[in-house]
């Protein structure tokens, strides 16, 4: 202990100088691995310490830090032995129980927020697990992540261009035709049934469509002028929905046009009857397509074909 520091800024005149130096050494090694020379230089230039330490003193400090639970290694380097702290007892740690809670929250967030917010939470957990060097948290996040096998840079660009409605030329690995170029005016990126889709208007087919993001290889071109104005052939479809349970989700273009005692009549406009057909089939017996006639007949035909698959039952 020695009398120390009398300045305008620091009013304390008594402190543990050795304790202070060990704190400085500890935080110095936390920043990055250091040689004995690096440490001496830092101590020499420090505004309060202003003196080097001997190699013997450094060893004493290192031994002391090890005693308090630090794992310190010394590795060879061209500049001499490099001291580094591998772990220490003051690290931010996340317990197994806390990981469970964070995963529970992941599930809540993934079901309640848009993809951008989920991406922020996902990235936050990944950064945290990297920073605190937690393999358990890292593994848990990898397992639960909605963005497994997704190029995050590409995804972020797709989200950005969807907001700006920029016409994109994409390299797309089509399940049917393999890799091909597609032109699309993106509308939104969403998670549907655990998969991430880009929704938008296909300029190759002039209709609304969706692309699995995992199949998008890269963005080839972005039309910054955004000149594309597309004339879409929209079909108006009416359907009756028997009940509006909380888990029934209407489409973005759907409008309730009539409310009956135990059902509602919904009208929607679509450029992609295939996608709409799938959605309406998903409502099961709760849904009856009312018009147009040819779409209604198509649904009936499909249902009859489906029944054929179970003719033995």
């Amino acid at each position: 202990m020695k009398e120390f520091l009398k300045s305008n800024t620091i009013t304390y005149n008594l402190m543990s100088f050795t304790g202070f130096k060990s704190l400085i050494l500890f935080s110095l090694l936390l920043e990055s691995p250091k040689t004995y020379e690096d440490i001496c230089e830092y101590f020499r230039n420090h505004e309060y310490i202003k003196e080097e330490i001997s190699m013997d003193t450094l060893r004493v400090y290192i031994t002391s830090l090890k005693r308090i639970g630090c794992e310190i290694t010394r590795t060879k380097s061209p500049r001499g032995g490099l001291y580094s702290i591998v772990s220490h007892p003051f690290e931010f740690r996340v317990s197994e129980e806390q990981i469970k809670a964070l995963l529970k929250i992941y599930r809540i967030i993934s079901a309640n927020v848009n993809i951008e917010d989920l991406l922020k939470y996902d990235k936050f957990l990944k950064k945290l697990s990297d920073n605190i060097n937690s393999a358990n948290l890292s593994d848990a996040v990898k397992n639960i992540s909605a963005f497994k096998n997704i190029d995050l840079y590409l995804l972020e660009n797709l989200i950005k261009y969807s907001k700006e409605k920029r016409t994109l030329t994409l390299s797309y690995n089509s399940p049917k035709n393999g890799i091909k170029e597609i032109k699309v005016i993106p509308d939104k990126v969403e998670i549907t049934q655990s998969k991430i889709y880009l929704y938008g208007i296909s300029l190759d087919y002039n209709q609304e469509t969706s692309y699995l993001v995992q199949r998008i290889e890269k963005i080839i071109d972005v039309d910054l002028e955004n000149k594309n104005e597309v004339e879409l052939n929209k079909t108006t479809v009416g359907y009756e929905l028997m009940s509006l349970n909380p888990d029934v989700k209407l489409g973005n273009n759907d409008k309730i046009v009539e409310i009956k005692d135990d059902s509602v009549i919904v009208e929607t406009q679509t450029t992609n009857l295939f996608m709409l057909k799938r959605r309406l089939l998903g409502y099961g017996p709760m849904c009856t397509v009312l018009y147009p006639e040819d779409f209604r007949n198509d649904i009936i035909k499909t249902l009859k074909n489906m029944r054929e698959g179970y003719k033995d039952e």
Binding site: V94, S95, E97, Q98, K100, A101, L102, K104, I105, I108, I109, V113, D117, K120, Y121, K123, F124, L125, K127
Partner: peptide
């Protein structure tokens, strides 16, 4: 990242009392 933290806070607000809530608050 702080926005992500605010999402955690929002999720905590809808979690009923129990281990998950306690551990998330502690975290």
């Amino acid at each position: 990242e702080l926005y992500a933290v605010s999402l955690i806070k929002s999720a905590i607000s809808i979690l009923p009392d129990g281990k998950n809530k306690t551990n998330a608050i502690k975290f």
